[in-house]
Nucleic acid binder design. Structure first.
Length: 267
DNA sequence: CGTGGGACCTGAACGC
DNA sequence: TGCGTTCAGGTCCCAC
């Protein structure tokens, strides 16, 4: 579920509670969540360490614990929040990290796609991820949206090209830039590349302001819902009228992902 | 290099 | 009510 704005919202919500906390023992209710680690290895180095900070890189959540990091990816249905119990009444908790003051950092994930891992440094993320879109200017996208015949939608979802864009905000940005998702990247004009860059930045920034999109699973760390889904223009609106031209919004499959667009507005 | 398919998983929604 | 099907914000891996 979560794309860059949802992950950013989770990080911002957790930061005040996590920074300065003392880590305790970790529990893996579902061992597969640890991605190759054993709980014993994790518990040999983490308890007693100070949680210094938390930040986002792409869709990864990076929590600095002592000299290393706990890295969390929410994938489709992951949630991260502070709880006063390791499980509570949440039957989907897969991992919990004890904290001081009888608190727990709980990672809940119905589909078991998400992962929690511990690393010495974050360099490995740089081999997987392109630049952060919110640090870019629209004109930077002239260079980024190049060198491929792939469909521009598929290209936007490639985390090595741009980090953090997912299925929803790719569709939304393409609609606002009036570009069909199927257009090969190499056939875009520089004007279109800049326009798309501007809209990627705008769509992500706006979604952060709305604190993410709650469609089914996503929740803010305090349990409340985001508002971003109320402002979608094409995502999930196949068969409905386009709010710009009143034409019918269509849904197709592109790169095995549901893709929503307005054939009249997007060229 | 790019794409298509499948795998990884569970739950919700929908059709009959 | 119940069963079967389809779909879902993501990423990785393999065959072609």
């Amino acid at each position: 579920m979560p794309e860059l704005p949802e992950v950013e919202t989770v990080v911002r919500g957790l930061a005040p509670q996590l920074s300065g906390a003392i880590a305790g023992e970790a529990i893996a209710q579902w061992p597969g969540v640890l991605d190759g680690w054993s709980l014993a290895e994790m518990n040999a180095c983490i308890p007693g360490q100070v949680v210094e900070s938390i930040h986002r890189r792409g869709k990864y959540i990076c929590i600095k614990v002592g000299p290393g990091y706990l890295v969390v990816h929410l994938r489709m249905t992951g949630r991260l929040y502070i709880s006063d119990q390791p499980n509570g009444d949440d039957k989907w908790v897969r991992f919990s990290l004890g904290l001081d003051q009888n608190r727990w950092l709980a990672f809940s994930d119905a589909r078991k796609f998400g992962r929690v891992t511990a690393v010495d440094d974050l360099n490995y993320l740089e081999t997987k991820l392109g630049p952060e879109p919110l640090t870019l200017k629209p004109t930077d996208f002239k260079k980024i949206l190049q060198g491929s015949r792939r469909a521009v939608k598929t290209f936007l979802l490639d985390q090595k090209r741009i980090a953090g864009v997912g299925n929803i905000y790719a569709d939304e940005a393409l609609f606002r830039a009036k570009i069909l998702p199927t257009r090969p990247v190499d056939e875009l004009s520089d004007r279109e590349r800049t326009a798309l860059g501007k809209e990627v930045i705008a769509v992500l920034s706006q979604a952060i302001n709305y604190e993410g999109a709650t469609i089914s699973w996503y929740r803010k760390p305090d349990g409340s819902q985001g508002e971003s889904q109320k402002h979608f223009t094409v995502y999930g609106k196949g068969g409905q009228a386009c709010e710009v031209c009143s034409g019918m919004i269509e849904k197709m499959v592109l790169g095995q992902r549901g893709t929503h667009y307005c054939p009249r507005c997007q060229k």
